[in-house]
Design a protein around this nucleic acid. Structure first.
Length: 175
DNA sequence: GTCTAGATCGCCT
DNA sequence: GGCGATCTAGACG
């Protein structure tokens, strides 16, 4: 098991290829993570920039937990907290490949395709909502299994933000 | 108390 | 490829 406490930009590529399992609602679903973005404490695009608040509290550790927030009033976005307590760093889970419970994901998503190819879609397919903010990722409800084998990936600029757009902290797995 | 921007998605042309 | 939907935290008065 890799350490959580490292730099988010350092940990992020290590999350590629890992398996995220959800037992939310008593239904078993799992995906392979193929796209992530790192957000750092000193990063203007990060929610933790400017200090701890009620919304981003779970982003300030302890590590190995989930930070969930609502985006554009409609979608949920899930992050893996990577920082020790008191520090705000996390890795946004942007996309994955369905592994287990594809029929469940289709039902939750209300469509056949495009099940987990975006942050909001990922949370919907796995049943993740604001209720799971702060959830332990080594627990029974949610579990993130890291893949020991190194994964080939590309590094690009982040998407959908208006600040620090040139920082190359988006990581996409390549086959 | 009121205002505003936002780490997006899905439908429309 | 463009645009409207829809809600919450944070900033300001």
């Amino acid at each position: 098991m890799r350490k959580w406490e490292d730099d988010a930009a350092d940990v992020a590529p290590g999350l590629l290829g890992s398996i995220l399992t959800s037992m939310i609602g008593g239904e078993h679903t799992a995906i392979r993570v193929v796209e992530v973005e790192a957000y750092q404490p000193d990063d203007p695009a990060s929610h933790s920039f400017g200090g701890k608040t009620r919304r981003n509290a779970s982003m300030f550790g302890p590590p190995g937990r989930l930070y969930v927030y609502r985006s554009y009033g409609i979608h949920w976005c899930a992050n893996v907290v990577t920082s020790p307590e008191g520090v705000g760093a996390a890795v946004l889970l942007r996309a994955g490949i369905p592994i287990v419970g594809i029929d469940v994901m289709r039902r939750r998503r209300g469509r056949e395709a495009d099940l987990v190819n975006g942050p909001g879609k990922l949370t919907q397919a796995l049943g993740i909502t604001g209720l799971h903010d702060g959830a332990d990722l080594t627990g029974d409800l949610l579990r993130l299994e890291l893949d020991d084998r190194p994964c080939r990936y590309e590094t690009t600029r982040r998407i959908g933000i208006s600040k620090a757009t040139s920082t190359p902290w988006r990581f996409v797995a390549v086959d």
